[in-house]
Design a binder for these strands. Structure first.
Lengths: 248, 248
DNA sequence: CACACCTATGGAGCGTTGCTCCAATTTTGG
DNA sequence: CCAAAATTGGAGCAACGCTCCATAGGTGTG
């Protein structure tokens, strides 16, 4: 009777798919995508590669599972609204709900920089896979409360999801490229980065890139997060403007 | 005098960065991203790896160059409009110009399936790099003809570009995953694929995924290209609806 | 013409990766 | 209690990106 809690002792440190995914996310967070190798993983879990492949099967599958895990927790913070029929004048709350869910994803990308690339890659690899399904469901469930006709739900949600995925991809800080991972970007660093990009745009040939040349200043002053929301508002405005008011 | 054109003979088959990029694009088109290896490249060019690295320096750089090359030719088909001042009622032609440029990118992704992933990855790796600059310039130059105030140019273009990049990423056919590359997807295959996705959505738990469950039918009937344009129209409608008509 | 210089070339080879295979170990079921 | 099944850990293989270096080819100089 040296084991006070036999059930927790019996499987004290057994390897499981969840534990592997958890370790993978930790590895990705602290050192980036390049650091996620089978050897690093087996080292961190103090096991062999064979044991890992018994649970996971594939490296890409592990990346996919890690991505889905993070996306799921990021979106689960916003429970799906239950009333499909919107109250009159509930347009604003519907918009706010969409903004909240989109920001959940946005913040998850900020917190896990590797997520930006993975989100993009997963979506291209399996366009209607688990990740897309989760995002689609989360956004679509809120689009339903906007009061637009049912026939426009799909195209509306699709447009929003495409924008969200594209914007979160770009607005991530470069991180995997160099090896100086886990360096949190401060606001000053961000401003310096925008300055350099703006200067690069201005130094471009004015004949080939007249537009970039013109708006280099606007670009330097912009705030990523605020502009992300501006884009969402723009799309929602287009939705309500275009929609035939059948459900009015 | 066995050489009729000495200047073309002098550099008859010399290795150059352009020739390497060209071979890389060919390799990517016929066999996907996984097939682009230094050994395959040196085999196709009948040279060694050292010679290749003398011109290219990096594998990722080569992928970036190949991506930028394809994007450049896809967008160069649409010369930038020269008149920044829109004629009254020129809103529609401005919209059509944006649609044309966006479709150029869309079709390029269809023609080069590997471009979808690369577009996404390049944008996340260097968010304001050469690829983004090209797309931004191409779209922004047309946004300028919409007749909206200058202060909204950047956010408007940004929203459009994010949507375009996200949408082109997702609407690509899966291709790299399996090794059955170079298999052109027919309409029947596409319909079968959409059927399977729709069935998968319907078989999902109705409690966790009520929205997907509801619109599975709409999703099956949708046309990628048409909906891509619908999304662009939606955003442009939002732009013209939100914009303060200062330049009227 | 001969010599030296420099760029370009091709391939051997190193370190690392994803993954397979298998002997050993642990857990489970009768 | 023991046989069967599940799990584990690591050796080892093929393939990868990339570096290094001996050589070849072109160009300018005496």
């Amino acid at each position: 009777m040296t084991t006070p809690t036999p059930q927790s002792r019996r499987r004290r440190q057994v390897l499981s798919r969840e534990r592997i995914i958890e370790a993978a996310v930790g590895l990705l967070d602290t050192a980036g995508t390049q650091a996620l190798t089978v050897r690093a993983l087996s080292d961190r879990l103090s096991t062999g590669s064979g044991a890992i492949y018994h649970h996971v099967g594939n490296m890409g599958e592990l990346l996919q599972a890690a991505t889905e895990s993070v996306v799921a927790t990021a979106l689960s913070a916003f429970p799906a609204p239950q009333e499909p029929a919107p109250a009159p004048g509930a347009e604003d709350t519907g918009r706010d709900r969409i903004r909240a869910a989109a920001l959940g994803l946005y913040d998850a990308v900020v917190e896990h920089p590797w997520l930006a690339t993975q989100l993009a890659v997963q979506v291209t690899r399996s366009p209607w896979g688990a990740v897309t399904a989760r995002v689609f469901e989360s956004i679509g469930g809120r689009v339903r409360t906007l009061g637009i006709p049912r026939s426009e739900w799909f195209e509306t949600t699709s447009t929003l999801v495409h924008y969200i995925l594209g914007a979160t991809s770009q607005n991530s800080q470069p991180f995997d490229v160099a090896d100086d991972a886990a360096a949190p970007r401060t606001g000053a660093q961000r401003a310096e980065f925008l300055d350099s990009v703006s200067a690069a745009w201005k130094s471009l040939d004015a004949g080939d890139y007249p537009f970039l040349h013109d708006i280099a200043d606007q670009m330097r002053r912009h705030d990523d997060r605020e502009q992300f929301l501006t884009g969402i508002d723009l799309i929602i405005a287009g939705i309500t403007a275009t929609s035939r008011p059948s459900a009015r």
